[in-house]
Design a binder for these strands. Sequence first.
DNA 1: ATGTCC
Length: 481
Amino acid sequence: MKPAEHMVAEAVAETPFRYRIPRRGAMRVPGVVFATRRLLPEASGDQALQQVADVATLPGIVTASYAMPDVHWGYGFPIGGVAATDIAEGGVVSPGGVGFDISCGVRLLAAGCDRDGLGRRLERLMDGLGRRVPRGAGRGGVWHVSRAELAEVLAHGARYAVERGHGVPRDLERCEDGGTLPGADPGQVGERAVDRGLGQVGSLGSGNHFLEVQAVDVVHDAAAARAMGLAPGQVCVMIHCGSRGLGHQICTDHVRAMDPVMPRYGIEVPDRQLACAPVDSGPGRAYLAAMAAAANYARANRQLLAEAARRAFAESVGCGLDLVYDISHNMAKLERHPVGEDAAPRLLCVHRKGATRALPPGHPDLPADLSAVGQPVLIPGTMGTASYVLTGVADGDAWHSTCHGAGRVRSRHRAAREIDGHRLRGELEAHGVAVRASSWRGLAEEAPQAYKDVDEVVAAAEGAGLCRKVARLVPLGVVKG
DNA sequence: ATGTCC
C-alpha cells in the first residue's frame, strides 16, 4: 500500500454541518468532518484535515475517518478524531488514536445548593479547594499508594477507590463501565510508568485540566436535566483530568514497541505517528491491556479528586455532591456496531481521541435511571467560558460519538507570548470567576482566546445530529492545573 | 497532555 503523503486533503460540503474528504490514494474510506465552514480547520495553518485523510489509510478501518467540530492538529490522529477498525478483518489499534493522555475525561457532580445559596462562601470554598487539589506539572496526588495498591487501581479503577472508602457505591453506577474498564493488565504497564503513577493518584496535572465550581445557566431539556439531577441555578463541580505521567509513559512505551514491528504485519502508514498493530496481535493486545490499566488509573484519579471536592464543600458550604456522570474522551474501546448494509453487528475497535462517546436512550450500558434520556456527555469549556451537558441521540453517527470541548486554535507557545497571565486572572475575577492557578504561564496558555467558541462547537455537534443539548454551565470559580 | 529531551 502506497503512503498517502502526496495527497492534499480537501473537504467538500455535503450539508451545512457535514464535510467530506473524498477517498483517494491509499485512503481505504472517505473522511467525514462534522463542522461548519467557520469551524473547519484552515488547510494552510493546520494539518488536521490531512490527518483525517491519513487515518483513513489504516488497515481494517470501516465506513469513514471521522472528525468532530472541535477537530485540530494532534499526534498522528487529529484531536477530535473517531475511527473504528474491524477486528476480524485485521483491524488495528493505534496509540496515536487515543492520545498521550489516556482516558483523559470529565466528571460532573451536582451540589445540594444553588448559586444564590453559595453567596459569600464561594471565596472560602475556593480557598479550601485550592488547598486540597494538587495541581501543576509533575505534582503529586492526594492518595499515596503502595505498588500493590497501584496494581489494584490499574486493574479495578474507581471501583477499587470506592472499596477503599474513597467514595460511595452509587458513584460507580454513574461511571462509564461502572468505574472499571475490563481487560486491564497491570503486568503490561512498564516499570517507569508505574514509578510515575505511584505518587499522582488524585492530582489535576496541567494544561487544559481544571476543577471548576459551576452553576447551571440554561436548561435546554428539562426532562433530561431532571433525570440527571440538574436544575437551573444549581451549583456543580466539573473535574477535567486524565492519567498523568503514567498514561503518558504507557503511550510512549507502546508506540516505541509497535513502530519497528509494523512490517511484520504488512502495515505501512503515511506518518510514523500512526504506529499501530492489529488488535488481534501480541503488540495490539499488550497496548489495549495497558491502555485499560491507564483508563482505570484516570477514573480512580477523578474519584479521589471528587472526594477532595466533597470534603471542601462539607467544610465550607455544608452540602453534598452527587455524581452526575464520569466519561472519557481519549479511549479505544471494543464495541459492537452494524457496519454499512450488514445488519449483523461487527466487533470494532473504536478510537475516540478528543471525542466523547454518546450513548442513545435505551442503550443497555446506561444506568436504569438514565435509560430514558441517554448518556450524559460532559463537555468542558475553555477556562472562564461555558461548559455543557449533552446527551446521545438514537441515530447518532460516528459510532455514537460527539465533540469533547472547544478545540485549540492558537498554540500554547503563541498564547503564552501574546497573553499576560496576571492580567487574564484580573479579567476573570472582574467577570465574577474566582481563580486559583498554579502558574501564570499555564494560565495564559489556556486563555479563552486560544480556543474555538464552545457554544459554536456544541451548536455544530447538535446541528450535525451527533447529540442534543441538555444544559449549559457557567464557571463561578476555577482551580487551574 | 507530559518529571514540556534519556
